Simulated scan of single mutants.
Amino acid sequence: MREVRLLGGPVEFRGALDLEDRADGVMPRRLPAWTREQYQDPSVYGATLLPSGVRLVFRTDSTEIEFDVLTSTGQLDTDPRPRPTGMLELLVDGAPAGRRQAPVGNVMRMAGPGAPQRIVPGEPGTVRFAGLPAGMKHVELWLPQQTPTELVALRANGEVLAPDPDGRRRWVHHGSSLSHCIEADGPTGTWPVVAATIGGVEVINLSQAGNALLDPYVARTIRDMPADLISLKTGINIVSLAAFRLRTFGPAVHGFLDTIREGHPDTPLVVVSPVSCPAVEETPGPTAVDRDGQITALGAPADVADGALSLAVVRAELARIVKARQADDPRLHYLDGRELLGPGETDDLTDGLHPTAAAYRRMGERFAAYAFAGDGPFR
């Protein structure tokens, strides 16, 4: 087994816009380094480290490959086990070739959600894939979408070369945790990856769990990066955090779209409204988690008349904005998120908000049927 350089070598990180060179290894991030100066909330930085859609790509004639990885996962003091680290998935020439549980590394202990963390340092673990087909092949290692994962080392028993250029169209997507898909059964089970696989495109998932708030630095990131297809799924975090009123929400949407259009004036762009979430369909946020672990709204329906946002209001406003802009922007499209997961499927919401792994796959299949169809916006 020969060690292969992770930086400055043949391996390519796709789905990451920044690579932090740390003492132990390479930590991929899904937003550029310059964005760190534009937010203070540590949850934003943490979300960028959760590598949804991030993969290592290379060509090799190896039949055995080893990866040393250092994960960082959380653990409540009341729980004897760390949170699940998720799966590492290997694809060979586009086909599944193995799944391995990501080893536990660093553990962040906390008394409860939002409490200060105490880091228990861990060691890198080794994940091995053997029995791979002989001959030169295209290999992708997909990182667990819910766990920050440093790549410490790569070893192979054959030659490792740079990957061929990806000739597929590039789809850039931004959304909330419902696009980040922490609850998916693996990194290739997130709905954007499911849809991209069906559509035959490469997806870059810039979704930020808990932080899809029309942030200008995200719009500028999308504006400045190559993209053949773009989608924006917005609304649930805005309602859950009561981040906007009706007066400020519309201009923020316009500003986000205006910034993207500065760099991509003619690129197909789909605005997706929230999927069903019973707690905030008619009742505004903010939201909280009750004793049963279910999402509940803290606002009052009467507050809507004064400009508070429910999901019903958000959907109506997004549809209105897109319709108004389409006169000058015919490649702008609107998709009601309930077409991906509707009111009759709320039993598939694990906590009243986040879908099950099976529901995420359905969402991907439905988005693909809409977007990549003969008359779809991504056709």
Score class of each variant (00 low, 15 high):
residue 105 G to S: 11
residue 351 D to Y: 01
residue 28 P to I: 12
residue 113 P to A: 10
residue 114 G to W: 05
residue 280 V to T: 14
residue 42 P to E: 09
residue 9 G to H: 05
residue 129 F to W: 10
residue 68 D to S: 14
residue 52 S to N: 10
residue 330 P to G: 05
residue 322 V to F: 07
residue 302 A to R: 08
residue 249 F to I: 06
residue 136 M to N: 01
residue 45 Y to R: 14
residue 271 V to D: 04
residue 267 T to M: 12
residue 369 A to S: 12
residue 352 G to K: 10
residue 167 G to I: 07
residue 100 R to I: 05
residue 114 G to M: 06
residue 207 S to R: 05
residue 331 R to A: 08
residue 55 R to A: 14
residue 163 P to D: 13
residue 44 V to Q: 03
residue 42 P to T: 11
residue 361 R to T: 11
residue 310 S to E: 08
residue 341 L to D: 00
residue 348 D to P: 00
residue 170 R to T: 15
residue 157 N to F: 12
residue 138 H to M: 09
residue 220 R to V: 15
residue 77 D to T: 10
residue 324 A to W: 03
residue 363 M to H: 02
residue 290 D to K: 07
residue 285 G to N: 10
residue 284 P to C: 07
residue 54 V to L: 15
residue 260 I to A: 07
residue 344 G to C: 03
residue 151 L to C: 12
residue 239 V to S: 04
residue 25 G to R: 04
residue 76 L to H: 07
residue 348 D to W: 15
residue 86 G to I: 05
residue 221 T to W: 01
residue 149 T to A: 12
residue 24 D to L: 07
residue 352 G to T: 03
residue 138 H to P: 00
residue 169 R to K: 15
residue 172 V to Q: 00
residue 352 G to I: 01
residue 242 A to L: 07
residue 119 I to R: 12
residue 242 A to G: 15
residue 80 P to T: 04
residue 189 G to V: 04
residue 213 L to M: 14
residue 377 P to A: 06
residue 260 I to P: 00
residue 145 Q to A: 14
residue 266 D to T: 14
residue 180 H to M: 10
residue 287 T to M: 08
residue 38 Q to L: 13
residue 172 V to A: 02
residue 227 A to Y: 00
residue 82 P to A: 06
residue 281 E to Y: 08
residue 213 L to E: 06
residue 136 M to T: 09
residue 245 R to W: 03
residue 21 D to Y: 03
residue 259 T to H: 01
residue 2 R to W: 06
residue 182 I to H: 15
residue 370 Y to F: 15
residue 62 S to M: 06
residue 226 P to C: 12
residue 19 L to H: 08
residue 350 T to D: 00
residue 296 T to G: 01
residue 169 R to V: 11
residue 246 L to M: 10
residue 311 L to N: 04
residue 206 L to H: 04
residue 204 I to L: 11
residue 270 V to I: 12
residue 242 A to W: 05
residue 125 G to S: 03
residue 164 D to G: 15
residue 146 Q to L: 15
residue 242 A to I: 09
residue 286 P to Q: 13
residue 223 R to L: 09
residue 328 D to S: 13
residue 75 Q to Y: 13
residue 160 V to F: 13
residue 309 L to H: 09
residue 34 W to N: 02
residue 369 A to G: 05
residue 176 S to D: 09
residue 295 I to L: 15
residue 343 P to K: 12
residue 51 P to G: 12
residue 104 V to C: 03
residue 210 G to D: 03
residue 93 D to T: 05
residue 365 E to Q: 14
residue 121 P to N: 06
residue 123 E to S: 07
residue 128 R to K: 09
residue 52 S to G: 13
residue 371 A to V: 11
residue 66 E to M: 07
residue 370 Y to H: 14
residue 317 E to H: 07
residue 71 T to G: 05
residue 290 D to Q: 05
residue 59 R to I: 11
residue 244 F to T: 08
residue 218 V to E: 01
residue 73 T to P: 00
residue 44 V to M: 11
residue 379 R to N: 09
residue 270 V to Q: 06
residue 295 I to N: 01
residue 206 L to M: 07
